[in-house]
């Protein structure tokens, strides 16, 4: 009888502890929501950002590196007509590993800021959504420079806040600069530029190639 009472008491105590912990949790969460200025900004590294801008598996037989500028109309064309179907047909099936690099050109006033936003989104795993929004609404933000509303529209308020904070982070700026330096080392001065690597051989493609032709090329590569 006493042992049964003890067991019930223990259960009640356990439940009370759980409730208290849960209560603290809810209150802490509520505090974060009450004070939007105190959003926790994740600590990120350049490597994490770079990993966030890749699609597919690293062991895929073909690797495609793209150097794009978010404000360049040809890059928008490449994204809409080539990269989107490429992701569906070749990246999803593990045939292609796609790596995105920023290469904002000096002649485009908002391209670098757009790249900062995209890399900030990459740091929190939201690169595909932000990349798509930036390219689809290119004409809109390129005319006004108002990038933040375009990015916020495709993210939850909390994630949008994180991206906004991260966009100013020196790590994000360093990630963009790293991409630019990589591109310059390859001799790139135009966008879009793609490098298709297969079997240790790299083929540069400058400009926009039509998807049926690229598909034929990738199939020929895979047959090798």
């Amino acid at each position: 009888m006493v042992s049964q009472l003890n067991r019930s008491l223990k259960r009640a105590l356990g439940l009370a502890t759980a409730l208290v912990i849960a209560g603290f949790g809810v209150s802490a969460n509520a505090r974060i929501h009450r004070d939007p200025g105190q959003t926790a900004i994740p600590q990120v590294t350049v490597q994490q950002i770079e990993a966030g801008k890749t699609f597919g598996i690293k062991t895929a037989p073909i690797r495609i590196d793209t150097y794009t500028d978010f404000e360049c109309p040809h890059c928008q064309d490449l994204y809409e007509t080539v990269l989107e179907p490429l992701i569906n047909d070749y990246v999803s099936s593990g045939k292609v590993y796609l790596v995105d690099h920023d290469f904002p050109l000096p002649m485009h006033p908002y391209a670098k800021i757009a790249a900062y936003y995209a890399d900030a989104a990459a740091a929190i795993g939201r690169f595909p959504q932000v990349q798509q929004a930036l390219f689809i609404h290119q004409a809109q933000w390129a005319a006004t420079g108002k990038i933040e509303p375009i990015v916020a529209a495709v993210l939850s308020p909390a994630k949008a806040k994180e991206v906004e904070e991260l966009e100013k982070s020196p790590v994000v700026h360093a990630a963009v600069q790293h991409d630019v330096e990589q591109g310059q080392a390859l001799g790139i001065d135009e966008t879009p530029t793609m490098y298709i690597t297969h079997g240790g051989h790299r083929t540069p493609i400058i400009g926009v190639v039509s998807y049926p032709i690229l598909r034929g090329y990738l199939d020929a590569l895979l047959r090798q």
């Binding site: 690229l214 090329y217 020929a220 090798q224």
Partner: peptide, 27 residues
Amino acid sequence: GSSLSLSTMTFAMEVDSYHMLPTWGVM
């Protein structure tokens, strides 16, 4: 045969980038 097919497709990509011909013309 396979090297030729790859060389042809590589050249096709470069012809295509001029945006002057339809896909069959490029090929």
